[in-house]
């Protein structure tokens, strides 16, 4: 029995198989519409996360399975003081697979160690959110055609952004990728990431302004710069516009540059950019669902030819 705790739990070969399956689901969803008939997914969400929970639920329903669960700790037995270990042992009696979101880091790992069914980490605090990374990789593979040989710009809050760190760690396993980190000095990518890139001889550059580098990028991964991350109001006012993607900035980019964003977006991408064919962030949501469908099937060891 396998679980998914971190995006690095799967080898690149295993990820290729997973993405192949997700791509096939996209092409022929009917073929997979009943592969999970009679199976139940439990969504154990100890904190609200509408997007991820809906994605998991949609994924299971589209495979023919059913969904049970709770969407905040207050409506679960956690409010009565039940441990994660006990909760997963109970869920194991009802469901065939569980997606768990918890505000504490390592909660899904605790669940997996006691579970009788596969556990998917649907986010554990600021630690891991592997299915977001799988969605990002799937989008890149689908839209760019491959997972190697490109220059990716990561823009915004690179210090606290969990999805950014996860994506970098996942991408360094592929060939010929270079990184451009675009952030205010306060929100630079952490040293352990740049140290790792130096050690692996992976090219990267760090810049403050998006306009300076956007023309060279094959891909741009946007994240939100939150006001509260700045030390003072003055810096925030001075820098915030650098990290808002507008139509004017898109005009400077190549005609093939893809724009990704883990969502939710606040104002870091102007709504006018949504119409640009290079904007992939809503497609990313769809790929996230396909990859979760493929993941559920893989962890449930459902014969991919069965459909």
């Amino acid at each position: 029995m396998r679980h998914l705790m971190s995006p690095l739990d799967f080898t690149t070969e295993e990820l290729d198989e997973l993405f192949d399956l997700a791509a096939d689901i996209e092409i022929d969803p009917e073929k997979y519409a009943h592969v999970c008939d009679g199976k139940i997914l439990a969504t154990a969400f100890y904190e609200p996360s509408t997007r991820t929970r809906l994605s998991f639920e949609a994924a299971m329903l589209r495979l023919g399975g059913k969904v049970i669960g709770f969407s905040d700790a207050g409506s679960s037995s956690a409010a009565k003081g039940e441990s994660v270990s006990d909760t997963i042992k109970v869920i194991s009696q009802y469901a065939d697979i569980c997606a768990m979101r918890h505000p504490k880091e390592g909660a899904a790992f605790v669940a997996a160690s006691k579970s009788e069914i596969p556990v998917i980490n649907a986010g554990d605090g600021g630690h891991q959110h592997p299915t977001q990374t799988l969605a990002d990789l799937m989008t890149i593979r689908s839209m760019h055609g491959k997972l190697d040989g490109f220059k990716i710009g990561l823009c915004g809050d690179l210090k606290f952004g969990r999805t950014v760190h996860s994506l970098i760690n996942a991408l360094v396993r592929y060939d010929d990728i270079s990184f451009v980190f675009i952030s205010p000095p306060e929100l630079r990518v952490p040293d352990y990431i740049t140290d790792m890139l130096k050690e692996k001889n992976i090219p990267y550059q760090e810049v403050i302004k998006l306009e300076d580098v956007i023309a060279d990028l094959d891909m741009l991964y946007m994240t939100r710069v939150q006001k509260e991350r700045f030390f003072n109001e003055e810096d925030y006012v001075r820098l915030k516009d650098f990290y808002i993607l507008t139509k004017e900035k898109m005009d400077l980019a190549s005609k093939d540059m893809l724009v990704l964003h883990p969502l939710p977006r606040v104002n870091e991408i102007s709504v006018e950019v949504d119409e640009d064919p290079r904007a992939c962030y809503f497609k990313q949501v769809k790929y996230g669902m396909y990859v979760r469908m493929a993941l559920i099937m893989t962890l449930l060891e459902i014969d991919t030819e069965a459909g």
Binding site: S83, V84, S85, H102, P103, K104, E105, G106, A107, F109, V110, D124, G125, G126, H127
Partner: peptide, 8 residues
């Protein structure tokens, strides 16, 4: 303080 061991 965000580790699961802090509450369990």
């Amino acid at each position: 303080p965000r580790c699961i061991t802090s509450i369990e």
